[in-house]
Write a protein that binds this DNA or RNA. Structure first.
Length: 483
DNA sequence: CGCGTTTGACCTGCGC
DNA sequence: GCGCAGGTCAAACGCG
């Protein structure tokens, strides 16, 4: 890596003795929150890394990583993103290359080429840069590019091996309590227990829960290496609503047999129209009929296989995104894949202090309250990833004529490392309401990427305006070089 | 036969 | 320490 990259603050020694291999707490703040383009280097950890890993040398680390391939097809021109495979914690990691078809995104070499002072800038900046036509689609010439890619490869491998080691070290319950796994939830008015979202899920459990007469079903994403899970249950308070909670992020695309997500906008506007709305009826991966077709009824046990045949008039009453230690506990639901679905609010929370948003409560967080902290842009990026995925799912599988005008301003709540809150009203930085930039689709008109720049810049300005005296986290300082 | 679901058992954390 | 609750496992089962 070039010298212009400011070394991250070295983590404390993993442990005072080599025996406490379970002490990985020092990764929480540093390791797991590396932005998408920031890969762990050996030097980041000082001499303790291999000792902590119990591995003799770097070759062994890399070798271990190479032996754990993932079958995800890498995006074009991406520097070996598929080398990452993690047993449990990968959901918490930003993707080496996110769901984007812009090959220049998340390419540190290219990003560096564009701006030598913002090596640590996150994805949205690079999006904006590439659209600005200042070389964002360019490439690093010759050996320099090769060296850079090799460097990235090696560090990816190292991170993979390290994370695998960590995962192997974690006990089951340590994994369960991983605070870094993002969670987001939907509450959907639907007769169906299971609402298609475009991903393929495998059910691995069902259980009656105390607070509800309805069973809770547990699903895992079936994509290789993907650890995203979701819980599905009917709301005990309002049985007309289905709650679905997602845990983790998909770092892969939709199954190929599915239609790609439509570009979209979730913001309230009469003028909003889907950009490339598919013509109904949509292709669907529906296995069995819904209740209107075969009468699932309110059946308890054994109802887990009830796939949606079609959902009509679903209403997304709330979307709650959370990356915090505290589970919102409100479950969720996602958009049905059919007619007249609507989103009434989106609530994002990546902070350790969860909003605890109640289920189905629209606009859980009051905009403008408790503005105090700055957030790193990569945290913001992760927020946007959550939202991107969540809303993309909703939008992709909702009807083209869904009454999106019902959407209310989105609140974003996050925290910094000090866990203080910042609360930004959606309208503050999503000024024109367009959210399409984050759909990471190749079909979005180029102009929409400018929207992304606008959003990001606005957010940072908003943050800074509300926290002028807040010293940023050491990781953050470079993040705020966003022009 | 393969794949996904079902479902009882098991594991773990937490409160008392 | 015990019981409860949530989450997960895995063998059995069912369907295409």
């Amino acid at each position: 890596m070039e010298a212009k990259k400011t070394p991250p603050p070295p983590p404390p020694p993993p442990s005072q003795s080599t025996t406490s291999t379970n002490d990985f707490s020092f990764f929480d703040d540093f390791f797991f929150e590396k932005p998408p383009n920031e890969l762990v280097e050996v030097g980041d950890f000082g001499p303790y890394l291999y000792e902590w890993l119990g591995i003799d040398d770097e070759d062994a680390v890399v070798e271990a990583a190479v032996q754990t391939p993932v079958n995800h097809p890498p995006p074009p021109s991406s520097p070996t993103p598929s080398s990452i495979i993690l047993e449990s914690s990968e959901a918490a990691l930003p993707p080496p290359v996110p769901n984007s078809q812009n090959s220049s995104e998340y390419n540190p070499a290219i990003a560096n080429n564009n701006n030598t002072t913002t090596t640590k800038t996150a994805g949205h900046k690079r999006r904006a840069e590439s659209v600005a036509g200042d070389g964002g689609n360019g490439s690093v010439a010759g050996d320099e590019a090769d060296d850079e890619n090799n460097n990235i490869k090696n560090r990816l491998k190292l991170r993979a091996a390290t994370m695998a080691k960590i995962a192997a070290t974690l006990t089951m319950n340590q994994r369960r309590s991983d605070n870094n796994v993002p969670k987001f939830a939907f509450l959907t008015e639907s007769e169906e227990e299971y609402l298609e979202d475009g991903y393929r899920w495998r059910k691995y459990g069902q259980k009656m829960v105390r607070h509800s007469p309805f069973p809770r079903s547990y699903y895992r994403c079936t994509a290789i290496g993907c650890n995203v899970k979701k819980r599905v249950e009917r709301s005990p308070d309002d049985p007309t609503h289905v709650m679905t909670t997602y845990e983790g992020l998909h770092y892969h695309g939709l199954p190929p047999e599915l239609p790609p997500p439509r570009p979209f906008s979730i913001y309230s506007s009469d003028s909003i129209v889907p950009i490339t709305a598919p013509k109904p009826p949509f292709p669907r991966r529906v296995k069995t009929g819904c209740s209107c077709c075969r009468g699932v009824g309110g059946g308890d046990g054994g109802s887990g296989s009830a796939r949606a045949g079609h959902q009509v008039n679903n209403t997304i009453a709330s979307v709650n995104v959370e990356n915090g230690a505290i589970d919102s506990g409100d479950g969720s639901a996602r958009a049905g894949n059919h007619a007249n679905n609507s989103v009434t609010s989106v609530n994002v929370n990546t902070g350790a202090n969860a909003c605890g948003g109640g289920s189905g409560v629209s606009g859980v967080n009051d905009a403008g309250s408790e503005r105090s902290a700055a957030i790193p842009t990569y945290v913001y990026d992760r927020q946007m990833q959550f939202v991107e995925q969540a809303v993309a799912s909703l939008q992709s599988y909702s009807a083209p004529n869904a009454p999106m005008s019902d959407v209310t301003p989105m609140d974003v709540i996050t925290d910094n490392h000090d866990q203080s809150f910042m609360d930004v009203d959606y309208e503050d930085f999503f000024g024109d309401g367009s959210f399409s930039d984050f759909a990471s689709t190749s079909s979005a008109p180029a102009g929409e990427d400018l929207v992304g720049k606008k959003i990001g810049t606005g957010l940072l300005e908003d943050i800074l305006n509300f926290s002028p005296s807040m010293a940023p986290h050491p990781h953050d300082q470079q993040q705020f070089l966003w022009p």
